[in-house]
Design a protein around this nucleic acid. Structure first.
Lengths: 177, 177
DNA sequence: GTCTATAGGCAGATAGAC
DNA sequence: GTCTATCTGCCTATAGAC
């Protein structure tokens, strides 16, 4: 049995990915989980606290996920492909990247949350840089920025029609030299 | 003197690009323009009507813009660079692409608006395809999808820190064969 | 930790006067 | 076209009982 706090985070994350952080309310969470809004305020006093907790949790999950990808895939190319597959998992649920969503809504989130979103992308880019460097590719920094941008952008476009090939096609050039 | 309807559209477009379509209200528009919310309802009965008008107007402006880019730039490469510069103009105002924003918030807009957003991206991709084809590049479809995805994604990432080099670096590979 | 009850404000939207 | 006035509902958030 997952506890209430986790249920709230899971549902809020999914709703942020589909509708945006401004696209759902505590009532949406409460009704779906089967509790009252006051109970959600007990766990996250302000909605901004919920936003911060969401980004911090995802950042921690990614840190673990990066390590797991390195354990499961012997080559940098295999790890990059694993990252692509991870994003295709979002598409299958018609979800965007949660931090990409918050990056889009940047001016409507608090400075504290904006700062956490920036940290998320710094981590992600650093990990990508490491993979391109391990792969012996020149201009690893440009490749990391390009890969990250294309990953986010192609998920955004792919979700319009649900076509996963958009992601594959957009990122094709990064997987073979 | 620009008329009220145009002022509403201009401001709503800018607010959508910074905060998202769910991140502002008729009060925000009314206060800034110096009218009352009832007057905005006269021009756009429902907020959804405003969303539809915003996307339709941008699509028309792009159709004109594409033609203008072809007139002003002799080579396809020059036109692609003009498209990049256009997006860097958004960055300078800390704005995201309006249709990119609505694509992110996809599940919170009406089917009618979602359909218009899809049309916007179809047009954009078709124009990019044409440029890559004119440039004699192989796999023009993959290049068009990749360029569009990277353009959107790099603007999203660049806006986090305000660094225009992110856009240049991410798209570098598309401008030289 | 969850509830009932409620405050106080803001949202989208409408009716009818000017 | 723009206004005043208003409706209804939803939103975030809090106080206090269980």
């Amino acid at each position: 049995m997952t506890d209430t706090k986790t249920k709230i985070l899971d549902l809020a994350e999914s709703l942020t990915q589909t509708r945006g952080f401004n696209g759902f309310s505590y009532i949406d969470l409460a009704n779906e989980i089967g509790i009252k809004t006051a109970s959600i305020h007990y766990h996250f006093k302000l909605k901004d606290d919920l936003a911060a907790a969401l980004v911090e949790r995802l950042r921690e999950q990614h840190a673990l996920g990066f390590a797991a990808m390195e354990a499961a895939n012997e080559t940098p190319e295999g790890r990059l492909q694993a990252a692509i597959d991870y994003f295709k998992g979002y598409l299958a649920k018609e979800e965007f990247c949660m931090c990409g969503m918050m990056a889009a809504e940047l001016q409507s989130v608090s400075p504290r949350v904006a700062s956490l979103v920036k940290a998320y992308f710094r981590d992600f880019e650093a990990w990508l840089y490491k993979q391109f460097e391990l792969a012996g590719r020149e201009n690893a920094d440009e490749l990391a920025i390009g890969f990250l941008s294309t990953l986010e952008g192609s998920l955004l476009i792919a979700r319009l029609t649900g076509d996963a090939d958009v992601i594959s096609k957009a990122l094709k050039g990064y997987l073979k030299e």
